[in-house]
Design a protein around this nucleic acid. Sequence first.
DNA 1: TCGTGTATTTACCAAATGGTAAAATTTCAC
DNA 2: GTGAAATTTTACCATTTGGTAAATACACGA
Lengths: 205, 205
Amino acid sequence: MPDGNPKKPSRIQTRNRSVILDAALEVFSRHGYRGATLDQIATEAGLSKPNILYYFEGKEDIHVTLLSKLMETWLDPLVALQSDGDPAEEILGYVQRKLDMARDLPRESRLFAGEILQGAPRMGPHLETDLRPLFDEKCALIQGWVDTGRLPPLDPQHLIFSIWSATQHYADFDAQVKVLLGQGSDPHKRASAHLRSMFGNMLRI
Amino acid sequence: MPDGNPKKPSRIQTRNRSVILDAALEVFSRHGYRGATLDQIATEAGLSKPNILYYFEGKEDIHVTLLSKLMETWLDPLVALQSDGDPAEEILGYVQRKLDMARDLPRESRLFAGEILQGAPRMGPHLETDLRPLFDEKCALIQGWVDTGRLPPLDPQHLIFSIWSATQHYADFDAQVKVLLGQGSDPHKRASAHLRSMFGNMLRI
DNA sequence: TCGTGTATTTACCAAATGGTAAAATTTCAC
DNA sequence: GTGAAATTTTACCATTTGGTAAATACACGA
């Protein structure tokens, strides 16, 4: 049994757990938790169903593991929002990082979106524990910039919401975006320019 | 059989179909298509499962009916975006209508979001047929305002995406928003002020 | 009130799905 | 190479779930 005990995992274990999680990310992000089946995940992973249940306790275990690992990655860009340089450029850099992330990790974005959309049934605690403190910290940072006149008056909480929604939109609503944009010139570049303009305007004193 | 034939529906039919659709909206929007069960919908509607299958051909029929009816409602605010008054105020009015809609019809917003998130498997055609033409028309309208100098240079397509994402975020990611805002002063009002400021800034010449 | 079409319930079914037991196979330290 | 442990497969099972058939109850115009 690979789980529970403190022994270090074998090479096979490490590889297979990672293969399974990647397959599960693919399937869960496309069909949602309920819509995904263990058979689909098994096929995608190139393993048999009982075999994946050898590495994970069950469907929910896979999903939760995925969400936990994802949370780190997901918060990275926000963690990187520091009080180093020019406030406006700091925030615009954050916007850019989030947008790049939506392009590079669309499956992760959709997995997250699906979970929240359904009321975060398997992630509620994580939100309180991991996201909330970081969110509060960065809101305070931005509020500080406002208070010291380095940014115009604005609402840090809703600013962050706008950044999240505007950037993740391109991953989460990809199906719609594709239909509406047709095949135009480098959508990512145009989105980036638009967002830089929009948020840039609002951050200018 | 209530379906297919051209007879006008009885009072009971009208009432029950509407009761079922409302229950289905509740269940589908909370759990997604696959996550929802006919039993849940039946319970929510106060009817038996075979009874709802007397009014609809099956689970998918209910879902598709729901999405079709929703599409109208959903596009209304965009239809109302006309070339009447001041361009900036027209667009800000649209933002406000969309935000109000996210507050008043969160279930509809989540149903729509869930469908798009999964690649619009049951709504692809509708997007091309209903949404695309309207989107193109309104983009042209906005582009016209830009070309005649009544709006600063901006990207109409991505502007609309930003409006959609920023407003619907409050309905679709409600679970997250609730956790992060705690209980503050009238979130809707603050969101409204923030969005008016953000988009107002960008629309000013 | 009677009879006919409408509406609802009861009793099912087949497929899908998450999961398990145990046998068979492979890996690897010695 | 050998044996024990890890890994994988085969053969299942119980539950859930979308859906159906047929019997029953009901509404309502004549």
